[in-house]
Design a protein around this nucleic acid. Structure first.
Lengths: 250, 250
DNA sequence: ACAAGATTATTTATCATATAAATTTAGCAC
DNA sequence: GTGCTAAATTTATATGATAAATAATCTTGT
């Protein structure tokens, strides 16, 4: 990858503004700046700023009107399923709740994807799934990255289910798992989930058993959900203990 | 709605180009035009064209590089879950296959949404769901639009499940159902599905029974899927009969 | 003939400036 | 105060120029 898209000034500004917006940097007290102010802030021309704002508009984050200026759209209009938006959202610190909601989403479509894969995956899809499982085995031996191989496994199944919408979710799984692992404090070398549980999914798909594939996948995600819930609870408890220590110090 | 966003020249061009792209108007033989050509084609300034292209880039449809020009991204990179992109895609004639894939997607998350709603919806959510069901009853009597009330029903449940990602899918449901109804040749006044089957979902949610809610919702979508599959088969048969009549005429 | 390096050409990226359009706000007559 | 007019503000559009990236072409030496 030579000229990463992020090098263009426009894209740098898009990502910077995008992060600021989802972080809630702008509100009624601090409204979104007018074009001229943004130009000053970034030292860029109006063309660049307008193009950046238009990209964020296309993702549902902004809206502009003559004389009224540009403002943040209500959060329900953001395209959460846009890979950029999702990444900016999950990058916010302390967003375990959003991760829970995303995992609830995975709980809906990944078991279904496994079931569809069991019904109609092609030989090459099986090859890819088996290759991903092998990567996980290698990771367990320390010869591969556990996180990347786990992601590759889930992606291989989304690819195998022969549905373009499911395939779309690859980027989001990638983003969410990487953030998730950061939140749940997993470290390199620590297996994320057992090979055995993952293999159950593969076996069911190869046996052309949709029900079993679905159930095995569901078990994997429930496991992930429990890790997230746990760290969310830890987070809350930490906050509470800080709160009480402040209280007791008064 | 006073100044619909579509009135700006930029947005008109975005939608026009977006439709042309998903229709496959551009390919290796007919590559995407350079900026200057697009300006001529639309009689617009470079600023406007560049902003439109940037919006389509944000939706994953295009990519640009100096000297290399602008080109269509491979379809797997398109943000299918962007409401605009989905609409452009479904508007293409003869895209029952895409509708099938979308309905497979609904089959994953709508039953789950109903189950979540059963677990944790608030009193006002129940109110909204019941109101939507009432609209469907009125539609059956000819006092409301059957399609709109059906959509309102599904949306009310997505709103009730307390998950932002599920709520995101509202726009897509709206688009897909409207296109679906066009494809399956339903007419105004013809009920899309029975009130009784829809009421089963509501009853299960109000009884706080996630399993039953999920199953009742699944039944609704399976019904919709069968209608689509049927019209897809009709389409294929029609095409085949045209093909054979051409053949027999030779 | 051919490889290496320099030159040219093409296209997007960025900047700058000006005018138009939309719409709120302020001013003013009554 | 009410209703009309004028001014002010902000985005939308147009135009033209320069910079940057890189493919294509043209030297030049062997």
């Amino acid at each position: 990858m030579q000229n990463h898209s992020g090098r263009n000034l426009t894209y740098v500004i898009v990502h910077d503004l995008g992060r600021a917006i989802v972080k809630g940097h702008y509100d009624q007290h601090n409204p979104f700046p007018i074009e001229a102010a943004l130009c000053t802030q970034y030292g860029a021309s109006r063309s660049v700023l307008r193009e950046a704002v238009k990209m964020l508009t296309a993702k549902g984050l902004l809206r502009a009107r003559p004389r009224q200026g540009t403002w943040i759209e209500p959060e329900e209009n953001w395209n959460l399923l846009d890979p950029d938006v999702l990444q900016w959202l999950l990058e916010r610190k302390y967003s375990p709740q959003l991760l829970v909601e995303f995992t609830e989403m995975r709980l809906a479509f990944e078991p279904m994807a496994a079931a569809l894969a069991a019904q109609r995956c092609q030989p090459e899809d099986i090859q890819n799934i088996l290759a991903a499982l092998d990567r996980m085995r290698e990771a367990e031996k320390g010869n591969d990255d556990p996180l990347s191989s786990d992601i590759a496994f889930h992606v291989s199944i989304l690819n195998a289910c022969g549905n373009r919408f499911y395939a779309q979710l690859k980027g989001m799984i990638n983003t969410a798992l990487r953030i998730s692992i950061r939140l749940t404090n997993q470290r390199k070398g620590v297996p994320l989930a057992s090979i055995r549980d993952h293999k159950k999914v593969v076996d069911a798909i190869m046996a052309r058993d949709p029900e079993a594939a679905s159930e095995a996948m569901r078990a994997l995600i429930v496991e992930a959900m429990m890790l997230i819930q746990q760290s969310k609870a830890d987070e809350l408890q930490k906050a509470a203990s800080i709160g009480s220590s402040i209280k007791s110090a008064q």
